[in-house]
């Protein structure tokens, strides 16, 4: 370990379409290097797994090189390597896992295979300091919409709820397509909605009656997506003009309303006074604003990392890896598999 007593840990993330390499020293972020293949997927309207995997292979060494150069870190000084071992796209994960093992063997440093979702929570340690225990975490992206009770991000994460159909970011992508906006939909809807007004009362999934009893902290966005598509189709068929801005604002309001309502309800129910939001959708300006006001009203402190640390990145993996090292956790074996369906309760593989 380095003279500061803080472990120098490199993290690799390849679960979807971002090749991320981050380096942290203890709880300090040194660099977060990213190569994204998102543009290559745009014309398909979604991430193509084989395209993503090929891009990871080509981007891996250049991204490692860039991270080391920008941080002024020599590989020989690393104390450990961490990598996302799941969940995610199997072929994409394998590129990162194999690269991490090569570093581990070549440099003779321990390897930590960690959970992608837990990393999304842990990244806030390098942004806002140690996580209060317990923390409530709302992870919302194209791949996940989860409410997690987090007593200890290295050892104890309890899933309270998740989407039962589409992820929140997926709904953004699909509605963007209906509205003729490009992929990925999130940033475009956010931008367009700023010029619109919430004029349409779109459905809030799993928020009433029996649904609420059975799925209090679960989400559903499939019905909302269908409702938006039907609303637009009916207006178009009747020859009426559709205000894309108003539809985007109304749709966004419905998503954000449910997310923040359930997150704050979870905090109250479990007596948690800190809420952290992560995942790509955390970059949404309306989500940030509504979460802020509802948390204030409920006496809950809101923590949201900067947008670049909310989307997939290597820093979050390094952040969790460093926690593992500092807690003295046993490293993963070199036979570590990539686990595309790794449950969030399994924090280290």
């Amino acid at each position: 370990m380095s003279d500061s007593g803080q472990p120098l840990v490199l993290g690799i993330e390849t679960s979807c379409d971002e090749t991320g390499v981050g380096i942290v020293r203890g709880e300090t972020l040194l660099v977060d290097a990213i190569a994204s293949s998102v543009d290559e997927h745009a014309r398909f309207g979604g991430v193509v797994p084989e395209v993503a995997s090929r891009a990871h292979l080509e981007a891996m060494v250049p991204t490692l090189e860039r991270a080391c150069a920008e941080a002024g870190v020599r590989l020989a000084d690393l104390d450990a390597v961490a990598v996302t071992s799941g969940p995610g796209l199997a072929g994409a994960l394998m590129v990162g896992v194999a690269a991490a093992k090569a570093l581990s063997v070549g440099l003779g440093v321990p390897l930590y295979g960690v959970n992608h979702l837990a990393s999304h929570v842990a990244v806030d340690i390098v942004e806002h300091g140690p996580l209060p225990s317990p923390t409530m975490a709302l992870l919302v992206s194209g791949g996940h919409s989860s409410l997690l009770l987090v007593p200890d991000v290295t050892a104890d994460i309890q899933p309270l709820g998740a989407t039962i159909d589409d992820a929140a970011g997926e709904a953004f992508d699909k509605v963007a397509r209906v509205l003729g906006l490009p992929f990925p939909g999130g940033p475009h809807i956010d931008r367009v909605a700023r010029d619109g007004e919430v004029t349409i009362d779109f459905p809030r999934g799993l928020t009433t009656g029996r649904d609420l009893e059975r799925h209090r902290f679960d989400f559903s966005f499939s019905g909302l997506k269908t409702a938006v598509a039907r609303w637009v189709e009916l207006r178009q068929r009747a020859g009426e003009s559709v205000s894309v801005a108003d539809v985007a604002a109304s749709f966004q309001e419905a998503v954000v309303d449910v997310l923040t309502r359930k997150a704050v309800d979870a905090c109250r129910t479990h007596g948690v006074d800190h809420l952290q939001i992560g995942g790509g959708v955390a970059a949404n300006s309306r989500l940030r604003a509504m979460a802020q006001s509802r948390c204030e009203a409920a006496g809950v402190e809101l923590r949201v990392p900067r947008p670049g640390l909310c989307t997939d990145n290597g820093a979050m993996v390094a952040a969790l890896g460093a926690q593992m090292v500092m807690r003295g956790r046993t490293p993963s074996g070199l036979d570590l598999p990539a686990d595309s369906s790794m449950p969030v309760t399994e924090i280290q593989a």
Binding site: S15, C16, D17, E18, H41, F44, G45, G46, V47, V48, P49, E50, V51, P87, G88, L89, S141, G142, G143, H144, S145, S146, A162, T163, D165, D166, A167, G169, E170, D173, G279, G280, V281, T311, D312, S340, S341, P343
Partner: peptide, 19 residues
């Protein structure tokens, strides 16, 4: 194969599509 993962049946929990 240009098939986006969102339109294929995923083995991943929570409708995985990243970020």
């Amino acid at each position: 194969d240009a098939v986006p993962s969102v339109s294929t049946k995923s083995t991943v929990p929570d409708g995985w599509r990243g970020a």
